[in-house]
Design a binder for these strands. Structure first.
Lengths: 228, 228
DNA sequence: ACCTGAACACCGTTCAAGT
DNA sequence: ACCTGAACACCGTTCAAGT
């Protein structure tokens, strides 16, 4: 029955080396980008994990940039899975921004490298469509909705790139905070009374809560503008 | 008269090569970082401009990180020059955030590399002290002022890093926007009606106006929270 | 005390050569 | 048609050697 398929003799142990394809490459990249290693997505490391020469990637992507855009879109698409619009427009906006952010932060390397690019692919389209639909429901006229969308979208992307950078800094980021508190302790409290008195409290604010606080301030500002 | 000073015979043409010092290095770096070249701040390029071996920098800074923090603080300090608190707390906040952003964007290379770090030096202290003073005048209690400061500070730093990245992308960023419009023209308007109808308008929003719009939304949200 | 220069372990990318 | 591997022009950093 399977004598006509002599294929599976040496396929398993031997690494591919041919039949790579975009799909295998993208999934391998996401696996590598799941950690917090700063240079996890170098062509040499991707190649090693694929069991192929690093330059084999150039047969499937024009350059690293194209690979990154494809990865970023996949990350956005993954974040949109299971999205369900809420009756409240502000809950929808918050949900869309936080789920996309969370998906990017699962792949910090992708976030730092591609958060400021336009992917022009399916995931991005879904995100934008859902954001504009929520703003439409809120009652914004077309141009206003577009402006608010851009503000929200770039707010989320900019801060996500920032946060991903902190994740990739890792230990160094925590050391920064410690050093912050220590060094301000030696600073003139007469010259900088408020800063010196607040440094401990400032350093204790974690990035995620800080982001959500800012997001709520932003959404509050949008609501205030809508009422006007 | 000047026979007792035989120094200026060979000083002019000959590059320093000794007597580097942090001051000369920092100023040279800022000069190099004033353009939009992506890798303007490599040790090799800094060394070339100083007329010294690249590794001579290690006699004055522990590593690239320390150099970057010193540069970032100098950029913040420069942004604070001429700052004059306004009677209105929200005008002060806006002014502080925009002038620091503008200073960073004059040195985009420094902004991308150091916007997420804490410098723990003079410029940062001045900025924080002025921000907290404005929030104090607004009437926020201590802890609330600290939370709002963190939100505003990281909002500005995150977005500034984002914008600096766009500047360094340069031509590619403009191409992204063009390609955005073109590629959405081929997308199903039934599946993504809002996105397709809005892409031209979305792409026409420039980063600087977008940032100011978002900043005003944020400040509006802070004002709304204060009234509550 | 400070600068030099070779060396190390990395990058993305190109191109001629293999199969 | 696709993969390989040497090569090119870069990185930050270390360390022995110079002066």
């Amino acid at each position: 029955m399977n004598t006509e398929k002599p294929a599976d003799k040496t396929t398993a142990p031997r690494r591919r080396a041919q039949g790579l394809g975009r799909e295998v490459i993208l999934e391998t990249c996401l696996k590598l980008a799941g950690g917090t290693e700063p240079d996890a997505l170098s062509f040499r490391k991707i190649g090693r994990d694929l069991g192929a020469d690093p330059t084999a990637l150039y047969r499937h992507f024009a350059d690293k940039d194209e690979l990154l855009l494809a990865l970023a879109d996949r990350v956005i698409a993954r974040g949109m899975e299971g999205y369900d619009p809420s009756p409240r427009w502000d809950d929808s906006l918050r949900d869309l921004m936080l789920r996309t952010r969370a998906s990017f932060l699962r792949y910090p390397q992708v976030a730092t490298l591609a958060a400021l690019r336009v992917t022009r692919q399916e995931g991005e389209l879904k995100f934008i469509e859902a954001m504009l639909a929520a703003l439409d429901r809120a009652g914004f006229e077309h141009r206003e909705a577009v402006l608010v969308y851009r503000a929200c979208g770039d707010f989320m992307l900019a801060w996500t790139g920032f946060s991903a950078g902190l994740v990739l800094l890792g230990e160094k980021s925590a050391q920064d905070d410690d050093a912050w508190v220590r060094s301000y302790a030696e600073v003139s409290a007469q010259q900088y009374p408020l800063a010196v008195a607040s440094v401990q409290m400032m350093a204790e604010v974690m990035d995620e809560e800080n982001h959500r606080f800012a997001l709520d301030l932003l959404l509050g500002g949008i609501a205030a503008r809508l009422e006007r």
